[in-house]
Design a protein around this nucleic acid. Structure first.
Lengths: 232, 232
DNA sequence: ATTAAAATGATAAATATTTTACATTTCAAT
DNA sequence: ATTGAAATGTAAAATATTTATCATTTTAAT
């Protein structure tokens, strides 16, 4: 029970009061994307807030050789694009749909209007952003400190939290490998090990987590950081 | 000129209007720390905002074996502790002084008062937080994609941006190695290479960057991500 | 049902990294 | 100036990862 990852933060949309959530969804346009379709590109400058309505979104960067490095997988309720609203900088990531996906697209003016009307929104966005920072720091730590087997388990678990679906993670081994900073060959090896441990099942274009609690427990036991005493 | 790292974001304190900065510094207590002294510990719950006044702060986590994994180096004007103000969670990192260091410690009530009085503060904190997220994503990318030599160069450069001193980075090779996710032996090897390239000079407990522009240029040429066209 | 494209499975040689061990240098305290 | 602790320098064997191929499985489209 010690792991920071377990502080499974609720998605942005669920942090809002029902009224505010309602208002935002109403003000937004719902846009549908097919599997693999590009939602936003790195370099775009048009600002706006996006929230996953259904499906999931892959966030990452295309290298100059065309390879895609995934940095995150966002499920329903998760938002992205805040960066464009609070800094005058272009988008830093490519975002594409994982399966059929609906996105609430909120234009900058609409966002500003709501933001001005609801002072509590700033606190919520701040807390969401800080939570994300925190997850990133955990991910960095995993990347640096954990052997590949543990690293893979931990990141699969993290992804399952934000992906929306508890038992299936939609992504190719090639992408996962890049996310973990290793080659597909190395990844395949550890996936097989995790499968032997009955923690996952490897599918075609997806990884199944038959019982996430088991994976949680395993990660907990094997990926120690100094336990935080949340009660203290 | 393509690299995201080059978007050398100003420190928090410098984003504030002079009046606001003044008010914050006045409201805060200045606390002095000697080299290596602990400023905050992971697990602490007392909230508050800290800003480096002089010197520098090492941010990281102690593993259960006592080893320290540094995740960042903060110089004058940089802040930390926002996490404790916007989430009800304990501190997630250990922070210690690198050399003689002065910290502005702003209590939660003082922060809240100023925060309520200055609506623009929320935007600034948001933008600072998002910038940090961004740096972390860059760091993650470097960790995953770049060979050790390039990775080391890039992270040294990043550290030089936030450390306050342009030409010297205060940290032991052991810490740097952990930060890069490799052993000291591997790190030493690439540091020697970087030194041969005249990009750095290795000291005792510190690394010198005689000409940061040279390092910048080298990183730019060797650590390609798809260039962002900032002008578009 | 057949087929082609996409993804996974698997292997071996080449390369990189870690581990382990010990030598040397630097710094600060006497 | 001397000394001990802390940090860096270096080397070789053991281990892990990548690279480069090719085979097999799965999926979706005809």
């Amino acid at each position: 029970m010690s792991d920071l990852l377990q502080l499974n933060s609720p998605a942005f949309l669920n942090l809002l009061s029902p009224e505010l959530a309602e208002q935002i969804c109403t003000a937004a346009t719902i846009v549908k994307y097919g599997d693999g379709q590009l939602i936003h590109s790195r370099g775009e400058t048009k600002p706006g807030l996006s929230i996953v309505r259904s499906g999931a979104a892959h966030v990452g960067v295309y290298g100059s050789d065309g390879t895609f490095v995934m940095t995150g997988l966002l499920g329903p309720g998760e938002c992205f694009g805040e960066f464009t609203l609070f800094t005058n900088l272009p988008r830093t990531h490519d975002v594409s749909a994982a399966g059929n996906t609906e996105i609430y697209q909120l234009s900058e003016p609409a966002f500003r209007r709501i933001y001005a009307q609801h002072p509590e929104l700033s606190n919520i966005m701040m807390s969401a952003s800080l939570m994300r920072t925190h997850l990133l720091l955990e991910m960095l730590d995993a990347l640096r400190r954990l052997p590949l087997l543990e690293r893979a388990a931990k990141i699969l678990l993290t992804m399952s939290y934000t992906s929306g679906s508890e038992h299936t993670i939609q992504c190719r081994q090639t992408d996962l490998a890049y996310t973990l900073g290793v080659t597909r060959v190395s990844l395949a090896k550890v996936l097989k090990q995790l499968a032997r441990l009955k923690l996952i099942r490897v599918g075609y274009g997806k990884i199944h987590l038959p019982q996430r609690d088991l994976l949680e427990q395993w990660v907990d036991e094997h990926c120690d950081t100094t336990p935080l005493n949340w009660a203290s």
